[in-house]
């Protein structure tokens, strides 16, 4: 789909929701939902997306939607998809009626508390697409560290202080974990590139069986940058090789974008308040470590894509 086709698709996620100015997930949700013309049923984990879009008696969802709890978006959509199979078999839904199933979850609901539920649903082979909007911390509860939070980032449960310099562990590699389930389609995308995102969402939605898509979603409050810079932040994450755009289709890796010359990681970190402390002279070694890690992970990925 090109931009024109994308923007002319019927709107399935209505404005008027209460996400922050500059929030990255509304364009992710809109793009994903616009990537199929079939009816969609969505499940969503507890988190920013759910609380800002379903404040009773209002809802932004123009499609059937269910929020169950924090850790069970994948198990919930499993039940919906199982119901679809059963009701189709019993003739309560017309045999030729196609419905797509999508589960949304943030990084807390996916990398952490919902990982088991996700793994179970992937292994069972339900026909659904999991969309992880990754803003790299528990933003809904006030910016707490998750296993997706990058090394060095200051959060409210791993803040930078006199002794500790924010998160001391590396970000979990969710793509590897999901890929290890040998599901047909796994991809990483970014909100700044809607054409790539919608191409991946379309593939994921049209893949029989489980598909997984993780989308980087800059968070103005948690990352502490100006709300006008969300798309720029996502772009820099990709241009610095921190967040490569790639997909794993039936086990085959493919790099979707290769910066002609990667920007230094510090260019990506600098505008973000969560990394401010790293720019003190005594923390230079941490920035060096980060650059080294980004390079290592990029090289590993490029090898897999060869």
């Amino acid at each position: 789909m090109n931009y024109k086709e994308l923007v002319n698709k019927p709107q399935k996620f209505a404005p008027g929701h209460r996400s922050c100015a500059g929030c990255g997930f509304p364009p992710i949700v809109r793009t994903v939902l616009a990537s199929t013309d079939d009816p969609i049923v969505a499940a969503c984990a507890t988190g920013c997306l759910e609380v800002t879009s379903t404040i009773y008696p209002f809802t932004s969802w123009g499609i059937p939607f269910i929020h169950n709890a924090f850790e069970n978006s994948a198990a919930t959509i499993s039940g919906v998809e199982a119901a679809y199979n059963a009701l189709k078999r019993k003739g309560r839904i017309p045999k030729n009626k196609k419905i797509k199933f999508v589960a949304f979850g943030g990084d807390g609901g996916t990398y952490d508390i919902g990982l088991q539920s996700l793994s179970g649903a992937l292994e069972r082979g339900h026909d659904f697409t999991y969309i992880l909007y990754d803003n790299e911390a528990y933003m809904n509860t006030g910016i707490q560290r998750s296993s997706s939070t990058p090394f060095g980032a200051s959060t409210t449960t791993a803040p930078a202080g006199k002794v500790h310099q924010g998160k001391e562990e590396w970000k979990k590699d969710i793509m590897q974990i999901v890929t290890a389930h040998h599901i047909p389609y796994v991809a990483q995308a970014s909100v700044h590139n809607p054409i790539d995102l919608s191409m991946k969402a379309e593939k994921a939605l049209n893949t029989p069986g489980p598909a997984f898509l993780v989308v980087l979603q800059p968070c103005t409050l948690g990352w502490r940058y100006h709300p006008s810079m969300t798309i720029d932040m996502a772009k820099m994450a990709v241009e610095s090789n921190f967040w490569p755009l790639y997909e794993v289709e039936n086990g085959k890796y493919k790099l979707n974008y290769k910066p002609s010359k990667a920007i230094p990681i510090v260019d990506y970190l600098k505008p973000q308040g969560r990394f401010k402390h790293l720019f003190k002279p005594e923390n230079k070694h941490l920035l060096d470590e980060m650059q080294k890690k980004v390079n290592e992970r990029w090289d590993e990925l490029v090898k897999k894509c060869e």
Binding site: I66, N68, A75, G79, V80, A82, A83, L87, S117, G120
Partner: peptide, 22 residues
């Protein structure tokens, strides 16, 4: 449709999804 879930938490979560689905 039998769903062999990976925990009781998911067993009930799956029932919630299925029941809400109709």
């Amino acid at each position: 449709e039998l769903v062999r879930v990976e925990s009781e938490h998911s067993a009930m979560s799956c029932c919630v999804g299925a029941s809400a689905a109709g």
